[in-house]
Amino acid sequence: MDGRAELERRLNDYVRSLRRYALVLTRDTDAAEDLVQDTLTKAIAAADSWQPGSDMRVWLFRILHNTHMSERRRARVRDDARLMLPEAVDDSDPTTRIELQQVLDALSELPEAQRLPIVLVALKEMSYAEAARTLDVPLGTFYSRLGRGREALRKIVGGMKTTRLKLVV
């Protein structure tokens, strides 16, 4: 495979990851696609500042994250809006589908500071250091937010199961 084809394949993977992250940030499929496109447009304009050999994925995630944050500051969107993710699509198994939706619902309960570390690590096996750089927080802060967030997520999912069980009974 030549260099250009290999680069296109990698970028295609990154864009899929960016779209997932954008969905979590924007809570809307159209807004997420807009954010991905803004990110790509900025990346094209800033391509000369990218250092060959450095991590392209972290570079793109940082652009996306910063673009989102500055747009949100401009729009003065309140951070307490609930995460409205589209429904997970997996019609192969209804039980799996419910479970996947459940974990997304639980994610929406978390504050953004905890939600984003969890999502970045779950998305594409990003390392802690890469994810911390993306969010522009110290590694220790990232680490503790991830731990707190996952613990909270576990409790929420546990609570959902209990509720569902009660309803069935």
Binding site: R16, R20, E87, L100
Partner: peptide
């Protein structure tokens, strides 16, 4: 599950 859920919505 979270990875699978995020993959499903984006794909």
């Amino acid at each position: 599950r979270l990875g699978a859920a995020l993959a499903a919505i984006a794909d």
